[in-house]
């Protein structure tokens, strides 16, 4: 798996490097000159991270479709589990590094007082990212499994529900917090109360980990790796 990770890093470092450096530069600027208002800073960092990961994520999706990477990896002496883990962990690792910088950057102005809020935010945010990453891989793999028509419909319905009600709303809310609040006040209050609580944020993170595991599980259930 580490050989695949290394190759992927070498292959994608232009995209990873440019978007990551851009994000870090802006984050550094906020830490030094814009971090006095913690709420505004938090939102801005979040938007940066969403932008950065979205670029890399889209790059991975497009490349996967154009370059038959899964097929290449299945032909090599790499076990199915390792190949499945690599697919989900590569982008997760990139996310983890960004979250580290995000956390460090936000703790400087916020100090220990904001640490708990920051921790809950990172947990919830990471959970949603893991769900999105897992879902994108599951939606790609499930059609190649031996699931019958009924279960395929169930899986596709779950993917649609998650995308529409979960991921998009969360991302929109995160990026445009005040605007969403004015449009849907009840939703905004309720939503914030969930993901800002310890149980809510840990629940979201746990869901993300579950989807991560599911993505490897579904990958290993594929009966066809031709693309």
């Amino acid at each position: 798996m580490w050989k695949l990770m290394r190759a992927e890093w070498q292959y994608s470092r232009a995209v990873l490097g440019v978007t990551g450096a851009f994000c870090l530069l802006i984050a550094a600027a906020y830490c030094l000159w814009g971090g006095s208002e913690s709420q505004a800073g938090l939102r801005a960092f979040r938007v940066l991270v969403i932008f950065c990961v979205s670029v890399v994520w889209l790059f991975q999706i497009i490349r996967r479709q154009k370059e038959a990477v899964d097929r290449l990896h299945r032909l090599l002496p790499v076990s199915q589990v390792q190949a499945g883990l690599f697919r989900v962990l590569f982008l997760t690792g990139f996310w983890g590094i960004l979250m580290l910088f995000f956390t460090v950057g936000r703790s400087i102005p916020g100090g220990s007082a904001g640490a708990a809020a920051l921790g809950r935010d990172v947990a919830a945010f990471s959970g949603v990212f893991l769900m999105a990453n897992g879902i994108s891989l599951i939606s790609r793999d499930h059609r190649y499994t031996a699931l019958n028509r009924f279960w395929m419909t169930v899986v596709r319905t779950m993917i649609a529900i998650f995308l529409v009600s979960g991921y998009l709303l969360f991302m929109l809310h995160g990026a445009l917090a005040n605007e969403m609040g004015s449009l849907m006040p009840g939703f905004d209050t309720g939503f914030r109360s969930v993901y800002r609580s310890v149980s809510g944020s840990l629940g979201i993170l746990s869901s993300g980990l579950l989807f991560t595991w599911l993505s490897v599980y579904v990958y290993c259930r594929r009966v066809d790796y031709k693309e």
């Binding site: 097929r71 299945r74 032909l75 031996a146 594929r222 009966v223 066809d224 790796y225 031709k226």
Partner: peptide, 8 residues
């Protein structure tokens, strides 16, 4: 044979 496809 190559493992790209799994027989039932």
């Amino acid at each position: 044979l190559s493992g790209l496809v799994r027989a039932e």
